[in-house]
């Protein structure tokens, strides 16, 4: 089987598993603030995308280039894909890339992919855990003029072709497409493997390739905040009316029975 050239797009985000109570909006700045003990992570669906690429590399061999965009990315976080088997890390890293939307982000990533040049498959997570838009992967495919399959739970490769199990509401469909193509991956595919110590040490030594807007042929005005198509008016948190009636009992079983009585009384059941 021929080796497969792959690009995986990974985004650094605040840990989405942090408890809901710690997410606080700074309404004056229209920004999400999180306490310093909430560490950034690779967006979970991007980790699933990385795992999809690694499984193909395990079987067919090939190269995985990891691509990310941001500013002052945390090296320990963004190098994680290298520690599990990524070959190269390209960072679009500059203040000009900050505060982008799906439009400006996809344009920059597509420009970087054109510069990387050779690829068979591009993998993205189905959506990022911060803005949850789910647009960037499809935007990249559209700009590059390549086909795409979204929400993949399994990807296999044979002779210049990818076979994908795509999740649909009542099950899944098996879809085929030829290279070059883009795939967005969902969590059902499986978690990203753990890094071995050797991998972590190798990743620590590897230096990322850093590109500024000019390196990918873009004007700083075309990327980040100034390249946006959409305008953010307001970021806010709707007020919740917390008023849960806790049903008690001498024992948990009695509480369960009391709950049934209370729900019947309230005509909920």
């Amino acid at each position: 089987m021929a080796q497969v050239n792959m690009i995986v797009c990974c985004k650094q985000v605040p840990d989405p598993e942090a408890p809901p109570a710690v997410f606080k909006v700074d309404t004056a700045a229209n920004k999400m603030t999180l306490p310093p003990d909430v560490k950034p992570v690779i967006s979970p669906y991007d980790e699933n995308a990385m795992e999809a690429a690694l499984r193909i590399k395990d079987k067919a061999g090939g190269k995985i280039t990891v691509l990310s965009l941001g500013n002052q990315l945390v090296r320990d976080v963004i190098k994680k894909p290298l520690s599990v088997g990524g070959d190269e890390l390209v960072l679009l890293e500059d203040a000009a890339f900050e505060e982008g939307d799906s439009w400006s982000t996809a344009c920059a990533l597509a420009a970087a992919i054109k510069k990387i040049g050779e690829y068979d498959l591009i993998f993205c997570g189905r959506q990022a855990a911060d803005w949850d838009a789910g647009q960037v992967g499809l935007g990249i495919a559209e700009i590059l003029g390549i086909p795409s399959i979204t929400i993949a739970r399994k990807v296999e490769v044979t002779d210049g072709k990818a076979t994908i199990e795509r999740v649909i509401p009542d099950g899944y469909e098996v879809v085929e497409m030829e290279f070059p193509a883009l795939i967005t991956v969902t969590s059902e595919l499986g978690d990203l493997r753990y890094a071995a110590l050797k991998g972590i040490m190798a990743a620590a030594k590897k230096q990322p390739i850093i590109w500024k807007p000019a390196d990918i042929g873009l004007d700083p005005g075309q990327v980040g905040a100034t390249g946006r198509r959409t305008k953010l008016h307001r970021l806010f948190q709707p007020v919740k009316e917390a008023k849960c009636e806790i049903i008690e009992g001498e024992t948990p079983a009695e509480a369960g029975a009391n709950l049934a009585t209370r729900l019947r009384q309230a005509k909920i059941m």
Binding site: C244, E245, I247, P252, A255, G256
Partner: peptide, 21 residues
Amino acid sequence: NIFREAKFGVVGRYEEVVPAF
């Protein structure tokens, strides 16, 4: 956090609460 969303709740191990419920 679910108790911030719920109207009614029971605090307890589901293995004991649910069968009785």
